[in-house]
């Protein structure tokens, strides 16, 4: 027995979607979706849960993560209820639910709060730079140190507990019985999806979108590896230097396309971009681009100018690591792959 809660619709609209009430349950969205299957059909079901406010059912569902937003459902919807955007908003909502700190929800729902957070982190960076007398060497050294510590801390304190919560909501609370061996056997699923996003290939719209995204993920992860593990800014190994250039170039070139489509709003997927989506791609662009320039200036020995550039880079990096990764859109990288893993576990 589920209690109907019409107030949930108002809550969800704070995460973006607001047209889902127009739905009259025809099911065209589900019929047209190339990822929806008989065993796991969406998005109509999720729209229904949302309009009726069945929060427990939504939290227990992995379906929002199974959608890769080609936008076909939204363009086919006879009532313009924007089911694709609803799925997107549910992902934001779920991200907020999984987050034990509750900060994700606050940042998603309030743009002023997000901007304040960005400003505070910027002030922090300036204060830090001031404290080390704006010395590039020291700043780069600290920046490198910060990256390592941030990855460890955020992963351990925020992301791991959040994944555990996701597991609790979707597997444990709905009382799904999963034998221990299945956890091990299905592990492959997690990594395949994490590194290939192969499910997105099932979307009808285009293979190019997947390819672009795939390249970006590989580029991003490699850049992360190059800077953190191989100390790109401090290294003198030619291979590492070139690798860093290539990877950072990939990141900012690909994100140009992503940013421009978010601005043009020419595809269904980018039509309803929220600030969190914009921050994500823009900051990714800045990261790649400033990293590229910082290394370039090091190589060109433009130290005075590089000082200011690095402060900019460090600001982007800190904001990325403290805001976007733990509480922003970055988490979809984890949740999507874990959702595929959990879905595999739930399979009978």
């Amino acid at each position: 027995m589920s209690r109907v809660n019409p107030k949930f619709a108002t809550e969800l609209s704070k995460y973006g979607s607001s047209d889902f009430n127009a739905c009259f349950n025809c099911g065209n969205c589900t019929a047209t979706c190339s990822l929806s299957t008989a065993d796991s059909s969406f998005p109509r079901e999720m729209i229904r849960y949302t309009t009726l406010g069945l929060e427990d059912d939504i939290k227990a569902s992995l379906k929002p993560w199974e959608c890769y937003y080609c936008g076909e459902c939204s363009s086919e919807c006879p009532r313009q209820a924007e089911p694709g955007e609803l799925m997107m908003s549910l992902r934001r909502y779920l991200t907020a639910q999984y987050d034990w700190t509750g900060l994700s929800g606050l940042l998603y729902k309030s743009l002023p709060l997000s901007i304040t957070a960005f400003i505070l982190t910027f002030v922090g960076v300036i204060v830090f730079a001031f404290s080390v007398g704006f010395e590039l060497e020291k700043m780069i050294h600290f920046g490198h140190l910060f990256e390592g510590i941030a990855i460890g801390t955020i992963g351990l304190v925020i992301l791991m507990p959040n994944i555990a919560r996701m597991w609790y909501f979707t597997i444990l609370k709905p009382k799904t019985k999963v034998p221990f061996m299945k956890y091990l056997k299905s592990m492959g699923e997690l990594f395949i999806h994490m590194f290939t996003q192969k499910r997105a290939l099932g979307c009808d719209d285009n293979q190019f979108r997947w390819f672009e995204h795939f390249i970006l993920v590989i580029g991003y992860l490699s850049l992360l590896f190059t800077t953190v593990a191989l100390n790109w800014f401090g290294t003198s190994s030619l291979f590492v230097i070139v690798l860093g250039y290539v990877m950072s170039a990939i990141v900012f070139v690909v994100t140009i396309d992503f940013v421009s489509s978010r601005i043009k709003k020419d595809k269904a997927v980018s039509k309803h971009s929220q600030p969190s989506d914009i921050f994500f791609v823009v900051w990714l662009f800045f990261m790649g681009f400033t990293a590229f320039l910082v290394r370039l200036f090091i190589d060109l020995d433009l130290l005075e100018m590089n000082k200011w550039l690095y402060i900019f880079h460090l600001t982007v990096l800190v904001q990325w690591a403290l805001i976007i990764v733990p509480f922003g859109k970055w988490t979809h990288f984890l949740y999507r792959s874990f959702a595929m893993y959990f879905a595999k576990l739930k399979e009978k």
Binding site: R3, V4, R48, L54
Partner: peptide, 16 residues
């Protein structure tokens, strides 16, 4: 009002 909702896979709903 209790209703078996055919739009939600015949889930039992409670409406106050």
């Amino acid at each position: 009002v209790k209703v078996k909702d055919y739009l939600t896979a015949k889930k039992e709903m409670e409406i106050e």
